[in-house]
Design a protein around this nucleic acid. Structure first.
Length: 618
DNA sequence: GCGGATCAC
DNA sequence: TATGGTGATCCGC
């Protein structure tokens, strides 16, 4: 682990006394999965050196260096603030912290038995079932970057998230397999079928992790949690040939930590007693807690908090150093508190859908537009699967230097068609090109947020047709009291949706007769004088090619106005001129048939999709 | 609300 | 030679 004395990183010396300029960087380069199992017997110092020298000089490395320096500076500021605070009277902060601690401790719930299940090296384990000859060979899943690797490979220091070529330096015989998501999903379903017998309301945390509340199960079967979990693990292994590790505790946070203690193929219980829990947390490195990553670990380490027990001594400072949320989170770590309500993910919880892809360094306006078009096409597919559209569109780019930028626009209507995604994202890209000169990119991505459902019908697992959900109230109003189980007629739905979109366009047209009107409606304070386009500091609208003032709001207002003047077809034609080597596109107003396959995929995804929870809140 | 940063897996 | 994709949250502005 990282407390190996010879390894760089949070340990030993206080942040400011550490001499080796690259110690923190070397620690960082070890990757985010240090807490994962299988590394205990590995010489981390040696691994660190190999990674460091394999990476040195690369653009990736240079960017990591920059990030490391930035973090070091931030930590310097944190320490300065800490010294400043320590000269002040903190008794009231300490009292407030103590009040909060007392309140939480009083409400501590030890009545529930929560289990965290984690499949061991899941993707690798699934691959191994198909190819038993891999059993005792070091191998990994994932090209370019390892998604996971088996324990044989971990002996060499290989880890998930590691670049393949680095892993090959550590383990020249490493075999890298391509990903087979469908296979893993299918196997995950098998595992879930078993665990559902122990808690039908289990919660999928990811494809290979789940939380269960087995309180009821243990009561009904008069079984101890330990025995019930041992039996469940045995049953999972027998029926799926997959081994899982488990943590048993009074809440999700502790169960998660516990499941890491006896990996692989083991289980660990933290008794539901206050003193046992406090004792366990006292010596637990902060990094073991879900929500504390490499950065927060370093920051905490710098202020003298290495374990959860160390949090108490600094309780009067933490809020001012790290903010309210982090303070509350840390106090809960100190006390070993976490949520106890375990429940299945709900469909409605999704907040965004996006795609991104990495390619070799690319530049050139046309090439980048082709990439943007590709992103739009990919996103359209995902939006169809997930049955949503979004009112905000986010463009993400990563320069060849690994610097990341995101820019977003609020679209005049909720978008999901590739043509719309492309058209509304294009001005953002054009703007970035204006801002930063010709871009050389290694990644581009698109995401929509502020989602609106486009679900036409719900089909439950018995094939029954549930009441459809129209795209909005305005469309819904057009239909009389439809039956509870009636299917929304496809054509009528499409027509209504089309009409709604046209209405929205018309509304924009009406509101934007003069771009200045749109500007005036913005919530910027009124300018001193009317904003006139200034040729010297202007951008060019990618649609009408006229110069526009270099002001975000004005520019966006103009884009809205400009787009609203055009028919969709015109805009498509317009953009396709800048797009060589692309085949004919379908008419964007044409109805897309909802395929049976699409629906099946959607349902599978809905079940697979984990419920994302903030580790900072209960 | 936006953009950067962090985190999990 | 070469370092991922998806989604969420938090913070500072």
């Amino acid at each position: 682990m990282h407390d190996e004395p010879t390894v760089a990183g949070p340990s030993g010396l206080p942040e400011e006394e550490r001499d080796g300029e690259h110690d923190t960087l070397k620690y960082s380069l070890l990757g985010p999965s240090l807490t994962k199992a299988g590394q205990d017997a590995v010489d981390q110092k040696k691994v660190s050196e190999i990674i460091y020298h394999a990476s040195k000089g690369s653009k990736f490395f240079n960017n990591e260096e920059v990030k490391d320096r930035t973090l070091t500076e931030k930590i310097t500021r944190i320490l300065a603030r800490k010294r400043q605070l320590e000269r002040l009277d903190l008794t009231s902060d300490i009292r407030r912290a103590d009040d909060y601690i007392a309140e939480l401790d009083l409400g501590r719930d030890l009545s529930q038995v929560v289990v965290h299940l984690d499949c061991d090296a899941f993707y690798a384990a699934v691959e191994e079932l198909d190819r038993p000859e891999l059993k005792n060979l070091p191998f990994a899943v994932g090209k370019g970057v390892l998604t996971t690797c088996n324990y044989e490979a971990r002996k060499f220091g290989c880890r998930s998230g590691m670049a393949s070529f680095v892993a090959m330096k550590l383990c020249p015989k490493l075999i890298c397999l391509p990903l087979n998501f469908d296979k893993y999903s299918a196997k995950a379903e098998e595992v879930r079928a078993v665990i559902a017998r122990y808690d039908p309301r289990f919660e999928s945390a990811s494809i290979d992790e789940a939380y269960l509340n087995v309180t009821e199960y243990c009561r009904l079967h008069e079984q101890t949690p330990w025995d019930a979990v041992a039996q469940m693990r045995e049953e999972i292994h027998e029926t799926t040939k997959i081994t899982v590790s488990a943590g048993i505790a009074a809440n999700a946070k502790l169960a998660k930590i516990a499941s890491n203690q006896r990996k692989p193929n083991g289980q660990f219980q933290i008794a539901p007693e206050r003193d046992t829990i406090m004792e366990f947390m006292r010596d637990l490195p902060t990094r073991k807690v879900n929500g504390v990553g490499r950065v927060f670990e370093r920051e905490l380490d710098a202020v003298g908090v290495k374990t959860c027990g160390d949090i108490y001594a600094e309780r009067g400072l933490l809020k001012k150093l790290f903010g309210e949320k982090a303070f509350l989170f840390l106090i809960q770590c100190y006390l070993g508190l976490g949520r106890t309500n375990i429940q299945p993910a709900e469909e409605s919880e999704r907040k965004s859908v996006g795609t991104e892809s990495t390619f070799g360094d690319l530049s050139g306006k046309d090439v980048l537009r082709a990439k943007l078009r590709y992103s739009a096409d990919e996103l359209e597919k995902d939006l169809e699967r997930t049955q949503v559209k979004g009112r905000t569109l986010v463009l993400k780019i990563k320069l060849h230097t690994y610097e990341v930028y995101t820019r977003q626009v609020v679209t005049p209507f909720a978008v999901h068609k590739a043509d719309d995604l492309y058209r509304f994202a294009l001005p953002i890209l054009a703007k970035l090109e204006k801002e930063m000169g010709d871009l050389k990119l290694r990644l581009m991505g698109l995401r929509v947020t502020h989602l609106v459902s486009t679900k036409k019908e719900g089909i439950d697992f018995f094939g029954m047709h549930a009441r459809p959900k129209p795209p909005s109230e305005s469309v819904k109003a057009k239909v009389e009291d439809e039956g509870e189980w009636e299917v929304w007629p496809e054509e009528e739905f499409e027509e209504a949706a089309r009409q709604e979109r046209q209405d929205e366009m018309n509304e924009i047209e009406a509101l934007s007769q003069d771009p200045q009107d749109a500007v005036d409606r913005g919530d910027d304070p009124p300018a001193e004088g009317p904003t006139q386009p200034q040729a010297s500091e202007s951008w060019f609208c990618p649609i009408c090619s006229l110069p526009q003032p270099a002001n975000d709001r004005v520019f966006n207002a103009h884009i809205d106005f400009c787009l609203s003047k055009q028919t969709i077809r015109d805009a498509v034609k317009d953009t396709s001129d800048a797009m060589p080597d692309r085949g004919p596109r379908k008419d964007p107003t044409t109805k897309q048939p909802a395929t049976v396959r699409g629906r099946k995929r959607k349902m599978a995804e809905t079940r697979d999709r984990p419920l994302k929870r903030s580790p900072f809140t209960m």
